[in-house]
Nucleic acid binder design. Structure first.
Length: 267
DNA sequence: CTCGACTCCTGTTAGC
DNA sequence: TGCTAACAGGAGTCGA
């Protein structure tokens, strides 16, 4: 599903939509407009403008608009678990775990049309994504691609809550979803149920190195479904290293797979 | 402030 | 063969 990695790929794809005049906005699904946005407010905000920057913070894609050099509104795009970004009929990413592999235009929830005839569309079968004007970017923690050791220690590795739940808390570190979290903890050999504040310095170092490695690998390989654990994320799945049957639990409201042998409860 | 439980959404799939 | 129920998880809300 779209996690920070997929959104970064979408962001790169969105650069093809920069510096093109917006002539109309299609909002076939009003439910998809969030934070009080309406078809009228979105149209009024965007028509006549151009996107001048495509940024990302965690799983939020932000398109900055401007007109005649004057800064305009910011458009925030969220993709839920099944949303795709399509620019000029070119999907930024092919395969999406848990999403339909069909690609039906009926699932277009939001479309921006440009003067040159092209368009940018958000296609989301399950409608868990959304579009907002001027989203609150500061509600999100530091981006997972950029987090430093001290930030990980001070904001994430604190308290009694399970490490897995902490890694998924977007207000502390933004961009980690279920698949990145499980793959990272498996590679770092740390149990997902450990209290977030219980890691020692050595474990914290392993976790950060694993996170950076996972993000780089997933970017290179094309998405968060390319992890080594992925094929075994099924009931009865086994650890790719030692073939031990994986634990399947619910932590932080999400299905969690871990190896009882490689990810011991204590240190 | 913290944190778990609950809710939203719908295509896919397992099972009868 | 056809139906139903379970499942997936990002994110917002609510109450303790």
């Amino acid at each position: 599903m779209p996690e920070g990695v997929e959104i970064e790929i979408y962001r790169i794809g969105a650069e093809a939509a920069l510096d093109r005049e917006i002539v109309s906005v299609e909002t076939p699904d009003e439910w998809f407009l969030k934070d009080g946005a309406t078809p009228e407010s979105v149209r009024d905000a965007l028509v006549g403008e151009r996107f001048v920057a495509a940024r990302r913070r965690g799983k939020l894609l932000i398109l900055d608009a401007a007109k005649d050099g004057e800064p305009g509104p910011r458009l925030g795009l969220r993709f839920g678990m099944t949303g795709r970004l399509i620019v000029d009929d070119e999907a930024a990413i092919g395969y999406l775990e848990y999403s339909s592999q069909r690609n039906d235009p009926a699932w277009d929830r939001f479309v921006v049309h440009f003067a040159d005839g092209g368009d940018l569309r958000l296609r989301d079968p399950r409608r868990l994504g959304g579009v907002a004007l001027d989203p609150d970017e500061d509600a999100l923690g530091v981006d997972a691609f950029e987090i430093k050791p001290k930030q990980l220690r001070d904001r994430v590795l604190v308290g009694e809550v399970a490490l897995k739940a902490r890694l998924l808390d977007q207000s502390r570190v933004a961009g980690i979803g279920n698949l990145i979290a499980d793959e990272t903890m498996w590679r770092a050999k740390i149990d997902p149920g450990r209290p977030a504040g219980s890691l020692d310095d050595r474990e914290a170092g392993r976790l950060l190195r694993a996170l950076r490695r996972v993000l780089a690998d997933f970017m290179r390989d094309g998405g968060s479904h390319t992890g080594r654990l992925q094929d075994q994320r099924v009931r009865g799945g086994r650890c790719p290293i030692c073939r031990t049957e994986l634990d399947r639990r619910e932590i932080g409201g999400r299905t969690t797979f871990s190896c009882p042998r490689h990810q011991p409860i204590s240190g």
